[in-house]
Amino acid sequence: MENLQAFSVFKVSIFVLLFSICFASPSLAADTTPVSKEAICKFTPDPSFCNYVLPNQTSNVYEFWRYAAQKSLSQSRKFLNLVDKYLKLHSTLSKTAVLALQDCQFLAGLNIDFLASSLETLNTTKYQTLSSLKTDDVQTLLSAILTNQQTCLDGIQATASSWSVKRSLSVPLSNDTSLYSVSLALFTKSWVPKTKKKGRKLLDETDQQIIDTNDVLVRDKVTVSQDGSGNFTTINDAVEAAPNNSAPSKGYFLIYIKAGVYEEYVTIDKKKKYLMMIGDGINQTVVTGNRSVNGGNWTTFGSATFGKKK
Rank of each mutant, 00 (worst) to 15 (best):
77 R>L: 13
80 L>D: 06
97 A>L: 09
142 L>V: 04
85 K>G: 04
161 S>Q: 08
150 Q>T: 15
64 F>D: 02
73 L>R: 02
103 D>L: 07
151 T>H: 03
53 V>C: 02
130 L>G: 06
137 D>F: 12
47 P>G: 00
113 D>M: 13
50 C>F: 00
148 N>E: 12
110 L>D: 14
91 S>T: 11
159 T>V: 11
152 C>D: 00
66 R>H: 04
118 S>F: 11
163 W>E: 13
98 V>C: 10
85 K>W: 11
116 A>H: 00
144 A>P: 07
80 L>N: 07
77 R>F: 08
56 N>V: 09
143 S>V: 03
59 S>E: 02
49 F>T: 02
46 D>G: 05
169 L>G: 02
173 L>P: 03
110 L>E: 15
114 F>P: 04
108 A>M: 12
111 N>I: 10
120 E>T: 09
171 V>M: 10
62 Y>V: 01
150 Q>K: 15
128 Q>A: 15
132 S>C: 10
153 L>W: 07
45 P>S: 11
67 Y>G: 00
136 D>A: 13
173 L>K: 02
88 K>V: 07
114 F>I: 06
95 K>L: 14
79 F>I: 05
88 K>E: 14
127 Y>R: 08
139 Q>V: 11
107 L>E: 09
128 Q>R: 08
134 K>R: 11
103 D>Q: 06
114 F>K: 06
168 S>C: 12
91 S>A: 11
155 G>F: 02
117 S>L: 09
143 S>A: 01
84 D>H: 14
85 K>S: 11
102 Q>V: 08
109 G>M: 08
105 Q>Y: 05
168 S>G: 11
82 L>R: 11
88 K>Y: 10
159 T>E: 10
127 Y>W: 10
84 D>T: 14
46 D>S: 12
137 D>I: 14
